[in-house]
Simulated scan of single mutants.
Amino acid sequence: MRRRFFVLATILLFTGCDDMNHQPRYDSYEKSSLFGDGKALQAPPEGTVARDDLQNASALADRPPMSAGLLQRGRMEFGIYCTPCHDAAGYGNGTVPARGFPHPPSFHIDRLRQAPSRYFVEVISKGHGVMYSYADRVSPRDRWAIAAYIRALQLSQGADIAGLPPEDQAQLKRAGS
């Protein structure tokens, strides 16, 4: 008798929990009588700030000081997020454009050499042309690191060999032979 009671109680318990799977809900753009405007999707209240927005805004406003660590971080992040389209040297000949997608501009054109570093941070944050925003993937500090690394790429590709120390010039000549 006791066993039947437990079996019956268990069956009733599990059937009672099934209501959790079939709760009334609204899809985002569905009509709703719950709100006065008849929409299920509501705008956030005035003055609402998304989590971490204030912290991210201050990190974007303040350019971190240049350091070897910042450049190293920029190189790593550039390799992860930028190289597929822009290639390792920044000429816009990555594997993605090689498969038929539009070529991004080279970082070595005059327009981008003259652009302030903040321009690169804003493009990473908001996207530009066919490039979508990387704001959800790349932290504000890492956006500055990538911008610093782009500047290093621009310097490296446009460097005058005569401005190098004699030992570096000799090493380049040996590598070119």
Rank of each mutant, 00 (worst) to 15 (best):
M20V: 15
Q23T: 14
Q23E: 14
Q23N: 12
Q23R: 15
R25P: 10
D27P: 10
D27N: 11
S28H: 12
S28I: 15
Y29P: 13
Y29A: 15
E30Q: 15
K31I: 08
K31L: 13
S32Y: 00
S32A: 06
S33P: 11
F35C: 07
G36Y: 09
D37G: 04
D37L: 04
D37K: 01
G38N: 04
K39W: 03
K39T: 09
A40Q: 09
A40C: 12
L41W: 05
Q42M: 10
A43I: 11
A43S: 13
P44T: 00
P44A: 00
P44M: 00
E46L: 03
E46V: 04
G47W: 01
G47E: 08
T48G: 08
V49T: 11
V49F: 06
A50N: 10
R51E: 06
D53H: 07
D53Q: 09
D53T: 10
D53M: 06
L54K: 15
L54T: 15
A57E: 08
A57D: 08
L60Y: 11
L60H: 12
A61P: 01
A61H: 08
D62L: 12
D62Y: 07
R63F: 02
P64D: 05
P65R: 08
P65E: 13
M66S: 14
S67K: 06
S67Q: 07
S67F: 08
A68Q: 09
A68W: 02
G69V: 01
G69H: 00
Q72S: 13
Q72Y: 05
Q72L: 11
Q72T: 08
R75C: 03
M76F: 14
E77H: 09
E77L: 15
E77K: 14
E77Y: 11
F78M: 05
G79H: 04
I80C: 03
Y81C: 12
T83M: 07
P84F: 09
P84D: 12
P84Q: 13
C85A: 09
H86D: 13
H86Q: 12
H86Y: 13
A88L: 06
A88G: 02
A88W: 02
G90K: 10
Y91E: 10
Y91A: 06
G94R: 02
T95Y: 06
V96P: 04
P97G: 08
P97M: 05
A98N: 07
F101I: 00
P102G: 04
H103N: 14
P104V: 01
P104D: 02
P105Q: 00
P105Y: 00
P105L: 01
S106I: 03
S106R: 05
F107N: 01
D110Y: 06
D110G: 07
R111K: 11
R111Y: 03
L112F: 11
R113F: 03
R113Q: 07
Q114H: 11
A115R: 07
P116A: 01
S117M: 14
S117P: 13
S117W: 08
S117Y: 09
R118I: 07
R118D: 04
R118G: 03
Y119N: 10
Y119M: 06
Y119W: 07
F120S: 05
F120P: 03
E122R: 05
E122W: 01
E122M: 04
I124C: 00
S125I: 06
K126C: 03
G127M: 10
G127K: 09
G127L: 05
H128A: 15
M131G: 03
M131Q: 03
Y132A: 15
